[in-house]
Amino acid sequence: MRTNRLIGFGVLVLCVISLMSPAGAQDDRVEIWPILKEQAFGDRPIAEDDGMVVLEVPQKVEDAAIVPLTVRVPPSVKGKLKSLALFIDNNPDPKVATITYGPAAGTGGERSFSTRVRVDNFSHARAILELDDGSLHMATRFLAAAGGCAAMQAKDPEADTVGMGKTIVRTFPSAVNSTPIWAGQVMIKHPNHNGMQLDINTAKFIPAHYVKEMTVKRDGELVLKLDATFSISTNPNFRFTFGRGDENHLDVVIVDTEGAVFDGRSHGSGS
């Protein structure tokens, strides 16, 4: 808790500085990626923009609290996927999410992953894909976020906590029956507080409280395990692909930072 608050203070200061000199936000900043890369991948080589992984972000960020972000692995990439890591360099916690793929993640078509993130400031977003052979491939895009710290405010704090934990799981069967890759979606009602909102009425920070882990299984086999940080938007929303199975039941288990466990299920066709 204390650490969160300290981070919060630091972030407020950073925000103020960067907003006061928006033009310099890109230039003056310490290049943080080499440090992040070293921490996450050591000295392993990472191929950049080699077409193995594609990252899609909006051309212009309209609401920095809900920035849709999609990672695609084109069908030309045939093998299994081992992991996918998402970073936003200049976010308070740059590591947005890490996904570890399981045997039911599927092969034989385009694979993808989408979510919505908070973007605290002008920053690079990165997707680093690890293939089965251990090779790393990175796609990088620049996010011109305009929301700054205001991005972190809940529109309606009551509405955000009503029905907390409600989890919706959907399956989107492929239009073509023979396609081996299907899509699924998980939505969870959760405020995903980042611990950085200072309330001047109480002079206190609203404590951090967010989804930190999600496991998705298809017919009992692991599709993916996701570790997340508070860079994921309020009411976390994930879309992903999985390998078509027999029943195509999706079972999802979600754990938040307070240890609360939420689960949801979808049946083979539709929701």
Binding site: C15, L19, M20, P22, Q153, Q197, L198, D199, I200, I206
Partner: peptide, 18 residues
């Protein structure tokens, strides 16, 4: 209103100054 402004005063001031 007090809560809404309370949690936003910092970011509102910063953004509007800019």
């Amino acid at each position: 209103l007090a809560r809404a402004l309370g949690t936003r005063s910092e970011s509102y001031a910063t953004a509007n100054k800019q």
